[in-house]
Design a protein around this nucleic acid. Structure first.
Ligand code: MN
Ligand code: MN
Ligand code: MN
Ligand code: MN
Lengths: 219, 219
DNA sequence: TTTATTATTTAGATTTGCCTAAATAATATT
DNA sequence: AATATTATTTAGGCAAATCTAAATAATAAA
C-alpha cells in the first residue's frame, strides 16, 4: 500500500494516542497533529477506506492490525534515525525529533535494515523508547513508572515521555539524562513538586508536570 | 523561502539541463521530470513568481542567481547522502540515486553540515560528480572527456554521466568503476564501438552509447 | 427530562500539483 | 510565401489535504 506522508503521520499519531486499546477521539487527534477536527474526519474516511483504521462516525478511531503494522514500521524508522542523529552526528536529544519526523517518511526496507545494522541494531532510542524490529516486535520495556508515582528512594531515569524541546532543554540544564541516578528527598503535598538529588549536584525541586514526564525504575 | 518538494525537484532539474547557460525548454524539462509540458508551464509561472527563474512565455527558462544558489544546496544534499549510503551503509552506486532523491528534501543546514563532517567533507560523490560546499562552491572538475572522444591510450575512469541503474549495472558486470584504469585497443568505425582492456581482464568491446557516458582522463 | 454545552460531521472553498484537449505561437518544409 | 509540423500555452478539471462556518449528534447540567 502506498501511503502519503500525511497518511503516515495520522497512522503514527493514532498509534501513539491509542496506548494499547483506547479509542482515539477526533479532537484528540486534531490536537496531536495540530490540525482541525474537520480535517481529521476527512482523513478518517480515507484511512477506513484503506483498511488501516476502524471508524464509525461519532464512535472514534482505532487501528486495524494492518494499521498497527504500518504504524510500527514508521516508528521504527523514526527511532532509528534518532539514534543515527545522536550516535553518529552528535545531535542532542532535543534536536532530533523534528528531523526524524521527516526522515521517517523515506520508505525503503533495505535502507532501514542497513541503518539498523550500522547502528548495531539498537533496541531503545535516545529518549528511552523501544525500537520495533523489522517484524514490528518491540522489546517489552522493563517495568517503569513516572517519577511522581515512584515509591522507591533511589531511582534511575529510563525514558522521557514528553519529547518537547522545552522539557528536554530543562532536563539538559539540570544534567538529567537517560541513565541518570537520582534520590528522592521529599514530596511537597502543596503542589506535588518533588525534591531530588543527583550525585555531585545540590538538591533541586521539580514540578509535578516535569515529574510526570520522567520515567524511572528503582536502581 | 519555503519550497515544496516539487519545486525543489524542478529547480534541480533546470540546473541540470542548463549546463552553464543554455535556455531550458518546456519539453525538455517535462521529459526530465517525467511530467507533461502543461504542468511545466504551470510551475514555471510559480517559480518566476518566487524569483527562482527567468521566464517569458515561449522563451524558455533559466535560473536566477537565487535559483542557482537553491539548486546547489539541493545538489549538495543529494550527493552527500549518496556518499553516506555508499561509504557507511555499503550500498552500491546504482542503488543510491532514488534514495538520495528523497533524502535531499530534508532541509536542515545543521544536519547537512554535520553529515558532511561525518563523511570527511567529501568533494566528489560515488558517481564522480563534484559536491558543492556550504556556500555552493564546487571543486572545478579536473579536465576529463567522454571515453568515445579520448585520444590517449591509457585512461582512468573519473565519472559516469548517465546514472541509470541499467548503465551502472552494466559497468558493474564489466568491473568498471571510478578509478578503474583501462587501455583503448581499437575504435571500430562501423558503429563507433570501442575495444578496451582492463588489467587482469580480457579485452571487451563497448558500444558508442556506453562510451559516451564514461568520463575519463589520461592516466 | 428538558436544556445547555461540547464533540463531531457536513458543506462548501482554497491551494498545490497534476492531467487532457484545444488553441496558439514558433519553426521547418515545400 | 504558404503550409505543415512541432512546441508551448491556455482552458477546464481532478485529487489530496487542508480550512471555516453551519448543522447535527452526544453528553452533561439543571
Ligand atoms: Mn512525520
Ligand atoms: Mn524518540
Ligand atoms: Mn528529489
Ligand atoms: Mn550522484
Amino acid at each position: 500500500m502506498n501511503l502519503s506522508i500525511a497518511e503516515e503521520n495520522y497512522v503514527k499519531s493514532i498509534y501513539k494516542l491509542q496506548e494499547g486499546d483506547a479509542v482515539v477521539t477526533t479532537n484528540a487527534l486534531a490536537y496531536e497533529l495540530e490540525t482541525k477536527p474537520a480535517s481529521v474526519t476527512d482523513m478518517a474516511k480515507k484511512l477506513k477506506e484503506k483498511k488501516l483504521i476502524d471508524y464509525e462516525k461519532y464512535k472514534g478511531i482505532t487501528l486495524t492490525s494492518e494499521g498497527r503494522r504500518v504504524a510500527l514500521q514508521i516508528i521504527r524508522r523514526h527511532r532509528l534515525w534518532e539514534c543515527f542523529l545522536v550516535d553518529k552526528l552528535a545531535f542532542s536529544w532535543e534536536e532530533i525529533h523534528e528531523l526524524a519526523e521527516e526522515l521517517e517518511h523515506v520508505r525503503s526496507e533495505k535502507l532501514i535494515s542497513r541503518l539498523s545494522d550500522y547502528l548495531g541494531n539498537p533496541v531503545i532510542d535516545p529518549h528511552g523508547d523501544p525500537i520495533p524490529d523489522a517484524h514490528g516486535k518491540m522489546a517489552k520495556p522493563r517495568p517503569q513508572t513516572s517519577l511522581d508515582q515512584a515509591n522507591a528512594r533511589r531511582l534511575v531515569v529510563t525514558a522521557v515521555t514528553d519529547q518537547s524541546t522545552a522539557l528536554l532543554a530543562f532536563l539538559n540544564a539540570k544534567s538529567i539524562k537517560l541513565g541518570t541516578q537520582l534520590e528522592v528527598i521529599a514530596h511537597y503535598e502543596y503542589d506535588n513538586s518533588i525534591e531530588i538529588k543527583l550525585k555531585q549536584h545540590p538538591a533541586i525541586t521539580i514540578s509535578e508536570q516535569v515529574a510526570k514526564n520522567i520515567m524511572v525504575r528503582p536502581v
